[in-house]
């Protein structure tokens, strides 16, 4: 039961933060149509979707233990496919956020390419029946991102933002590994989840501060 509570609290915190960031940045995106903002918002939208289906997947895995219901393998597979799809799009969007200025394609073209690759990923998950393929591909994406950063930003490869985004990817991968039953003990999970939530909270604070401080200044003027 502690496991379910931990997962539920983690899900509620992280998903609420992701959705807040997505909704809070809606207006400035609609006004500017900025490519980087588009990917930035998409990252958090797809993270929220991925975390939702991740929780659903956990509930399915433990449905017999928690609720006494044995769900069919197909349900298990569907939730896994959605987690794979949403997380891949989220990680691609995060990569595109970092590299938005250097991507020659329009945001629509880039988005279509990302969605197609994510589809290929879930086909891979479907064929193999294992989410390890998601982890493998996500790790490859981190490598691609680092190589791209080296090529495109020789002078200033790492900044606070890029470190935050890289940590976000790294901790997402860890949380993906963490939801395999028996792979990690509860204490380790708690530490990992707290660190992951801390990264989301730090981004939430900066988004909120940036969008609120300006409003206050304007109101005072």
């Amino acid at each position: 039961m502690e496991l379910l509570t931990t997962e539920l609290v983690f899900f509620l915190i992280v998903t609420a933060l992701c959705l807040y960031i997505y909704i809070r940045t809606k207006e400035i995106y609609e006004l500017s149509g900025h490519k980087g903002l588009f990917f930035f918002r998409n990252t958090f939208l797809f993270f929220a979707i991925a975390f939702f289906f991740r929780l659903l997947h956990i509930l399915i895995i433990f449905s017999k233990d928690f609720f006494g219901i044995m769900l069919r393998g197909e349900v298990h597979m569907v939730s896994l496919l959605v987690v794979g799809y949403a997380s891949t799009v989220a990680l691609f969007s995060l990569t595109a956020t970092i590299l938005a200025r250097d991507i020659p394609w329009s945001k629509v073209q880039t988005d279509i390419a990302m969605q197609l690759i994510a589809l290929v990923v879930i086909i891979g998950v479907f064929i193999t029946g294992s989410y390890n393929i998601i982890l493998l591909l996500n790790m490859i994406m981190i490598l691609v991102m680092l190589i791209a950063l080296f090529i495109t930003h020789k002078k200033k490869i790492l900044s606070v933002n890029r470190i935050t985004y890289l940590l976000l990817i790294a901790f997402w991968l860890v949380t993906m590994m963490a939801f395999t039953p028996g792979r990690l003990d509860l204490t380790t999970k708690l530490v990992l989840y707290a660190l992951t939530a801390a990264i989301f909270i730090s981004i939430f604070i900066r988004v909120n501060k940036r969008l609120t401080v300006h409003g206050k200044k304007k109101g005072q003027a």
Binding site: T25, E27, I28, E30, L31, S32, H34, K35, G36, L37, F39, F40, T97, I98, A100, S159, N161, R162, R206, V207, R210, L211, H214, G215, K218
Partner: peptide
């Protein structure tokens, strides 16, 4: 109205883009 809002929020948009290096 959207055009007026763009003028009003212009500095906010630029600030956000700079803050997150978008």
């Amino acid at each position: 109205d959207k055009g007026f809002r763009y003028i009003e929020k212009y500095n906010l948009i630029l600030g956000f883009i700079d803050e997150f290096e978008l």
